[in-house]
């Protein structure tokens, strides 16, 4: 979409460094987000996701490095840049005494123009009642209000910190639809999450962050291939050694543990290889149980960190 203004990346972060006291929160973070793309950042709590976003918004000041948003240096940037950004803080705190509609009107007064039809449309899609006092809303509904607040002025760049936290699965899907519509309209979305499946669904590119450093930036497909899964296989009519010999040759098979059971054998493992060879390897077994479990993201990140070269 060329209508979204000048060329060049939506976000260009160069060597961001931030200290909080004696701990380094960002340790030389660099990345580029092309316009019209969805860029995810994942990592365990405390990795620096929120710090990156707050630095981009110029809420906190970097020790060194700089960030350019939509072609403008974010440091002390004027209202013109902020009007083109929608932000959803990770720890969303909203004024409680007013109705949702009134609160949104206040933010629209600052960052407008906003079509009120747009606000009603967003609220309708998310199932949010705008005429209730904010204080009386549940955490999930407050989060929806935060999402409306970020999207309502159709900003060129959306910076969303853990946007789906507190949303039920149905609303998470609706939110992901909003993100993909935003991309189709030429908007750029920068979002963080600790839910790997959500990032996989929404993002074009993913940065994995740990201890204030980007370990890797990867396309979603390659992330899917490298994702670590817990597996458990039970089969009848074979020994533990036979089961072991089938699974051991697979690339990415780790922590393999095969035991005999009353009728056959059972194996548990942590598997990070491609899924298709695994399915082929067990296809001729007389399976009694098969569990392939998506792991906690934190664990994935930990493992990626310990073998960074293998993951690129």
């Amino acid at each position: 979409m060329t209508s979204r203004g000048s060329s060049g990346p939506a976000i260009e972060a160069i060597d961001l460094v931030k200290w909080f006291g004696k701990t380094v929160a960002l340790d030389g973070v660099s990345f580029t987000v092309p316009r019209g793309s969805v860029f995810g950042v994942i990592g365990p709590n405390g990795a620096g996701k929120t710090t990156i976003m707050r630095a981009l918004l110029d809420l906190i000041r970097l020790a060194s490095g700089h960030a350019t948003l939509l072609g403008t240096d974010s440091r002390n940037a004027g209202p013109e840049l902020r009007r083109r950004i929608g932000f959803l803080p990770g720890e969303l705190i909203l004024e409680g005494r007013v109705t949702g509609r009134r609160l949104l009107r206040h933010y629209a007064n600052i960052s407008g123009p906003v079509h009120s039809g747009r606000v009603d449309d967003l609220a309708g899609r998310l199932g949010l009642d705008l005429d209730r006092t904010v204080r009386t809303l549940s955490k999930g509904n407050k989060q929806k209000l935060g999402i409306v607040q970020a999207f309502m002025h159709q900003p060129d760049l959306l910076v969303l910190d853990e946007p789906t936290s507190g949303l039920d699965p149905l609303m998470q899907q609706e939110f992901l639809a909003l993100v993909s519509e935003a991309r189709d309209a030429g908007q750029t979305v920068f979002l963080s999450s600790h839910v790997i499946s959500e990032i996989q669904q929404a993002a074009d590119e993913v940065a994995i962050l740990r201890d204030g450093r980007i370990i890797t930036v990867a396309g979603v497909e390659s992330l899917r291939d490298t994702a670590i899964r817990h597996i458990r296989v039970s089969a009848n009519g074979l020994s533990a050694a036979e089961l072991n010999s089938r699974l051991v040759p697979l690339i990415g098979m780790g922590e393999l543990d095969c035991r005999a059971t009353a009728t056959g054998a059972e194996a548990t493992a942590v598997f990070s290889g491609a899924i298709s060879p695994f399915v082929q390897a067990i296809s001729t077994l007389s399976l009694t149980d098969l569990v392939v479990e998506e792991p906690e993201l934190e664990e994935s990140v930990l493992r990626l960190y310990s073998q960074p070269k293998a993951r690129r």
Partner: peptide, 30 residues
């Protein structure tokens, strides 16, 4: 703003515009 160009022209609903001194006004109203 470039964003304005991308906005669908069909949307004729009421606009909430940027106002003068929004923070000042809100402080007094609150």
């Amino acid at each position: 703003m470039t964003a304005a160009a991308a906005r669908p022209a069909a949307d004729q609903s009421e606009l909430v515009r940027r106002t003068m001194l929004p923070i000042f006004t809100k402080s007094l109203i609150d």
